[in-house]
């Protein structure tokens, strides 16, 4: 009863003049946690929905995702239809972006070409996030010798120049969709592991991990159930940044002829295929180049918006 005045004091009208709700019975820790998450989530959604960076990025990305999924519905011509009598045509009303060396419609090929990058980049990123997060969790949670071993391996892997290795592996072993996805994922695992390791290291310092250990929770269980939910924000931010790099890498590999083989209308592939004719029909290269540039910038804008909202 002695603390009655202080309680009344906190119940004084808030600056906005509204009388506060009756606090009722004290919140259980679980409720408090759920409330905090909900409030946090509402804050993030509000920040994102008012961030011009995030919105413009998301609109661009969604546009290409729609095109990648539904290109059959939006292409004006068959992207593979060869028409030797109408090759190298400049943009016109029938062919809005002109035709290429084989008389194929450039606009249709650009729209149909979105799907490969949209498949490779997210698949590689998801794969890398799963393995990278697992490594980072294990290293950060157990610490000690495990941590040193994993992080040293990460250092060595990060020092390896990725594009050289990609040229070697894909050039020598030959390329396939799966090879490209796995390779990009392998390149990204170290960076993600390092980020996650850093966040997990901070979390492990907090009391709840110790409490879970005392309660007798098993290492793996407490890692996934207790620690993982608290490091999802950094993982999500890192994943979107990696996604931008994955698009960059996937496009570059296919430009180097290490991705999909012709007649795939993939953007990078098309640019290297049409390179010889740049003086005759620059539109056949410019169109996929600009499409790729918008997509990459879109992903990076969205990633940037997300990073700021989670700060």
């Amino acid at each position: 009863m002695t603390d009655q005045p202080t309680t009344r004091q906190t119940l004084a009208p808030e600056p906005n003049g509204k009388t506060p709700h009756d606090p009722g019975p004290p919140e259980s820790p679980a409720d408090a946690k759920a409330n905090r998450t909900r409030r946090n989530r509402r804050y993030i959604i509000k920040t994102l929905s008012t961030s011009p960076t995030f919105i413009s990025g998301a609109v661009i990305v969604l546009f290409w995702v729609f095109v990648g999924v539904a290109w059959q519905l939006v292409v004006p011509h068959d992207p593979q239809a060869v028409d030797p009598f109408h090759s190298f045509e400049p943009p016109s009303s029938t062919h809005l972006l002109g035709t290429d060396n084989l008389g194929r419609d450039v606009l249709s090929r650009v729209l149909a070409g979105a799907q490969t990058v949209l498949l490779i980049a997210p698949a590689a990123t998801v794969l890398a996030v799963i393995f990278g997060a697992l490594l980072g969790l294990v290293a950060g949670y157990y610490g000690g010798i495990v941590d040193i071993f994993v992080m040293r391996a990460v250092d060595v892997l990060m020092a390896i120049p990725t594009l050289i290795v990609a040229v070697l592996v894909l050039g020598i072993l030959g390329s396939s969709l799966l090879n490209v996805i796995i390779l990009i994922a392998v390149f990204f695992v170290p960076q993600i592991a390092r980020t996650v390791r850093g966040s997990v290291g901070d979390e492990v310092q907090k009391g709840y991990v110790e409490a879970a250990r005392m309660r007798g929770e098993r290492g793996f269980y407490s890692m996934v159930i207790e620690v993982l939910p608290n490091v999802t924000s950094p993982i999500l931010v890192e994943a979107t940044i990696r996604l931008g790099y994955a698009v960059f890498t996937a496009a570059t590999l296919s430009f180097l002829g290490l991705g999909l083989q012709p007649p795939s209308p993939d953007w990078g592939r098309t640019i290297s295929e049409q390179r010889a004719y740049i003086e005759i029909s620059p539109w056949a290269l410019l169109a996929p180049a600009i499409a790729l540039a918008t997509f990459i910038v879109g992903v990076n804008l969205a990633a940037d918006g997300l990073r700021k909202a989670f700060k």
């Binding site: 496009a251 570059t252 290297s272 410019l286």
Partner: peptide
């Protein structure tokens, strides 16, 4: 700086060539 850094070299190369 950020936009130029994230765009692959062959994309900016094609635009510059054109």
């Amino acid at each position: 700086g950020v936009s130029l850094t994230v765009i692959p070299e062959f994309v900016s190369g094609v635009v510059l060539l054109s």
